[in-house]
Design a protein around this nucleic acid. Structure first.
Lengths: 205, 205
DNA sequence: GACGGTTGATTGACAAGTCAATCTAGAGCA
DNA sequence: TGCTCTAGATTGACTTGTCAATCAACCGTC
């Protein structure tokens, strides 16, 4: 058997995580039993508990791994010396590209964590808020520079922004709106365009 | 005991529903056992099953009762001969007033149904979409009248609108943003203002 | 005395997490 | 090269607890 690839323990761990993405995406967190994950990974039930403390720990690892990328990207965008609008567009694009790149993982994160305020959302609130916060800061800076109208609360915009984008992803996830490449391209730009033109001060006097 | 008010069966049914609101709001749907609802209502366990087919049926009744009010209000607003912006503001105000009037019920509906795409959200997708749809139609009409820019997809706007408002309610529910009377007044206006000023065509030539 | 309302103990299904047994790969040694 | 020995990986049957839902008995009232 020449092409029998040797699997290291790390491979198995990875296999479990990736199986979990598929099963969580398919059935939702609450209706997946640990046995389903093990089956999907082609691994014994108990091995899941060898690598992870609990079913919840599997989910947490999936979320944290990806969310920290988003936070890093947001922070880096925030630091850059580019127009506020570019920063917002960059964040929107990053989220949408994450979905394009791995729709199942993003589905799980949005549906089971970010918008699941009772279960995982509560546990990970601090990290989730950090993401909103970057948007708030971008807007607040924009206000200080005189680009954005002062009467709109930056914190409010942070929520508006993520509320809108997550709803959009939900729409794709559940087939409520077409999920073509073209749509992906347009959508991010459209959120930012809609948001900004309401925010930017207009000297129309 | 002269002021022992006679309770009719209908009262008991109502008591169960209202107890359910409180318990669902406090613990979330998944961590409430039917016994908790019965206890909170001061009623025997089995009586819940006398009036409702299942725990799920209790939740469904809570949702449907309130959501149909929202749909009715939206439809009525849609029919009225007022500016598109007033219609949108009316919907936003209705939702926010619902929250002011009965925060626990709205918390349950938003957290457990509207944003719970896997459990109840899936079951009630058609009704939820009907609400988005009214917003889409308002925007589409606005486009036909030349008020709103054509390049923005009305369906997207329907989702953003609800995404933003629900995120806002979540913020109040979890104490992320202050929930004062003043904020309530401003918030609805702010969602619409932010949205519309990005949507309204500007003849700035 | 009959019937709808009411009770709460009981049932049965289901699933997370445990654990003792088994396997495997490689290190040390002659 | 061949032989042990050990640590860690892997297995899946079993334990344990939890709840939704049922049901048989028990009011109270007309």
């Amino acid at each position: 058997m020449p092409d029998q690839v040797k699997t290291t323990p790390a491979d198995k761990r990875r296999a479990i995580l990736e199986a979990a993405i598929r099963v969580f995406a398919r059935q939702g967190y609450h209706s997946t039993r640990v046995a389903d994950i093990a089956d999907e990974a082609g691994v014994a039930y108990g091995l899941v508990y060898h690598y992870f403390r609990s079913k919840e720990a599997v989910m947490t690892e999936l979320f944290t791994e990806r969310w920290s990328l988003l936070l890093a990207a947001s922070d880096s965008l925030y630091e850059q010396d580019i127009p506020a609008r570019e920063k917002l567009a960059g964040i929107a694009r990053f989220i949408i590209d994450s979905y394009r790149h791995d729709p199942e993982l993003m589905k799980v994160i949005i549906i089971e964590v970010t918008r699941a305020a009772n279960s995982f959302g509560a546990t990970h609130l601090p990290e989730i808020r950090r993401a909103y916060d970057v948007v708030s800061r971008i807007v607040a800076d924009g206000q200080r520079e005189g680009l954005y109208r002062e009467e709109i609360d930056p914190d409010f915009v942070g929520m508006w922004f993520y509320g809108a984008i997550e709803q959009l992803l939900s729409g794709w996830v559940f087939g409520l709106i077409p999920a073509t490449d073209e749509e992906f391209e347009r959508a991010g730009e459209m959120v930012v365009e809609t948001l900004c033109c309401g925010l930017e001060r207009r000297d129309d006097s």
